[in-house]
Amino acid sequence: MAQYIIYFNQQWVGDHSEEWFSKRGPLANAVVEEAKDAGVYVFAGGLEEDINKAFSADATSGELVVTDGPFAETKEFLGGLTVVDVADDDAAKVWAGKIAEACGWPQEVRRIG
């Protein structure tokens, strides 16, 4: 078994109505429950959308510096993630597909470690 992170950037979500989003929540929750039932669920969660509430820790100078805001100024930022523990890339692709369909926006997948 291997762990995979399935994630999306907030900018991939797109502009949708409140009604559209309210219909996606139950679909996404159903996929999480399906992953739990299948024994592959490790973690899932959406991130705070206000990037200004982020903070960063950097020790590359030899001294720890903690600052308000994101580490890098960038147009895209992480919106949410799911971690699954599955047999292989093919299984990770299946779960990424389920999540993408439920959420209604693209997902990227990377193996952990």
Rank of each mutant, 00 (worst) to 15 (best):
M1T: 11
A2V: 09
A2L: 15
A2M: 14
A2W: 07
Q3T: 00
Q3C: 00
I5H: 06
I6Q: 05
I6F: 04
I6S: 05
Y7M: 11
F8M: 07
F8I: 03
N9C: 08
N9Y: 13
Q11A: 11
Q11W: 00
Q11R: 00
W12R: 04
W12A: 06
G14K: 02
G14V: 05
G14P: 01
D15A: 11
D15N: 12
H16P: 03
S17R: 07
E18F: 11
E18L: 15
E18A: 15
E19A: 14
W20M: 12
S22M: 12
S22V: 05
K23N: 04
G25H: 09
A28M: 14
V31E: 05
V31C: 07
V32E: 15
V32P: 01
V32K: 13
E33D: 13
E34K: 11
E34A: 10
E34L: 03
E34C: 03
A35P: 07
K36L: 02
A38G: 14
G39L: 10
Y41Q: 06
Y41I: 03
V42S: 04
F43Y: 14
F43N: 12
F43T: 07
F43G: 06
F43V: 09
A44D: 06
A44S: 13
G45K: 04
L47I: 08
L47P: 01
E48W: 08
E49R: 13
I51K: 13
I51E: 12
N52D: 12
N52Q: 11
N52Y: 06
K53T: 12
A54N: 14
F55V: 10
F55L: 09
F55I: 05
S56T: 15
A57V: 11
A57S: 06
D58G: 01
A59C: 06
S61E: 06
S61R: 03
E63W: 00
E63D: 15
V65H: 07
V65W: 01
V66L: 01
D68G: 07
D68V: 03
D68K: 10
G69N: 08
F71T: 10
A72E: 13
E73L: 07
E73Y: 07
T74Y: 08
T74E: 15
K75G: 01
K75F: 00
E76W: 08
E76A: 10
L78E: 07
G79C: 01
G80D: 04
V83A: 00
V83G: 00
V84F: 02
V84N: 02
D85G: 00
V86P: 01
A87S: 10
A87L: 09
A87F: 00
D89T: 10
D89I: 08
A91M: 09
A91E: 14
A92S: 12
K93L: 14
V94K: 15
W95Y: 09
W95I: 07
A96N: 11
A96K: 01
K98G: 02
K98R: 14
I99V: 06
I99S: 02
E101W: 00
A102I: 02
A102W: 03
C103H: 09
C103M: 13
C103R: 12
G104H: 10
P106F: 11
P106D: 10
P106W: 09
Q107F: 10
E108D: 14
V109G: 04
V109T: 15
R110A: 08
R111K: 14
R111W: 06
R111F: 03
G113M: 04
G113P: 00
